[in-house]
Design a protein around this nucleic acid. Sequence first.
DNA 1: CTTTTTCTGTACCTGTAAGTCAAATAAATC
DNA 2: GATTTATTTGACTTACAGGTACAGAAAAAG
Lengths: 192, 192
Amino acid sequence: MGRAKQFDPEAAIVQAMDVFWRQGYASTTPQGLADALGIGKGSLYNAFGGKRQLYDLALQHYLEAQRAVLASWLEAPGPVKERLRSALTFLVETDLADPHQRGCLATNSAVEFGTADKEVASRVGNLFDYTEQAFASVIIEGQATGELRSDLDAGAVASMLLNTVTGLHALARVDHGDGRLQRVVGATVDLL
Amino acid sequence: MGRAKQFDPEAAIVQAMDVFWRQGYASTTPQGLADALGIGKGSLYNAFGGKRQLYDLALQHYLEAQRAVLASWLEAPGPVKERLRSALTFLVETDLADPHQRGCLATNSAVEFGTADKEVASRVGNLFDYTEQAFASVIIEGQATGELRSDLDAGAVASMLLNTVTGLHALARVDHGDGRLQRVVGATVDLL
DNA sequence: CTTTTTCTGTACCTGTAAGTCAAATAAATC
DNA sequence: GATTTATTTGACTTACAGGTACAGAAAAAG
């Protein structure tokens, strides 16, 4: 009962996510958010509570989307090494296609907040753990089929690949358009 | 002529660097800087011009120090692979020994500003280029002595190692103290 | 010792970040 | 259609960010 919302909260969260993603948390203002969402500041506070709560929702949305991308990638068919190559290539091309070079909201959040914010660090840490696990299971699969060397610790290689992904997202923020990110992917996969 | 400064500007820049390093640029206030430096806000503006100028000086100081570390590491003796391992291990141990988990100011700046600030992106980009070059020369050395595989593009491996270093600094910001960063170093060097 | 110049501390200023609140508005239920 | 409940708008508030201005202090030059 009562008046219905004049905007779609889910769509608003996606808009807010984009603003935080481009500018970071500290540089984003409630007024800027309200403008981007096309609503008044009062409506924003009524609907979401405040800047920080909206950030939590936006970050959560991003993390869930990333988790879904990872999960779908896990189910992809084909040789393990080529799956890894295409996944990393897709990541790089996505990052480079972004006119704002936003990188990755999870990585950006990790760097901006560090461990100062326990909540953010925990949420982002969960995605990192999940990503590492996803890599590990694929590497184990590759070792079982003989596609990958078996003398390496799959967990350690998984950590390395998580680190590779995080590094790519960070470097994508300041990339010049030289082929650096592509070289990273090429060398990483070639070494496996 | 005139009154001499009551504080050491060089030491003040180092103090300011630490504050920016811990908190990032946007979350740092002039008052907080003045307090950390132990001087009045008026002295800060008189000596450095403003928050942004002081940031430039602090970042420049950091970049020069990093460049010096890299240069000294280039001259180290011993087998290439062990030099790489010890360099990355040193990096990880340094990052993990930091009670504030500041990571790397260059990486933090790249992620915080992205390409929005041309000046910062350019300065940080120079260090990234220099680091990549340093890795490349060491890899070429290793390939020449037969310590490393010669079938790989040295430039691509150098890009990969730069990416590894950047990723380590980013992950160090939210590290839990599980051995993830050490696993990254182990797997990376083992694969070379 | 005086003068000149620079530094220091404090007060002050303007703008805006972040959030609150009351009145107006509109939808759903009876 | 009257009532109830929720949303919207926009004015309002507090606090602080970022910076300026000025008066006083102190060091070097003469």
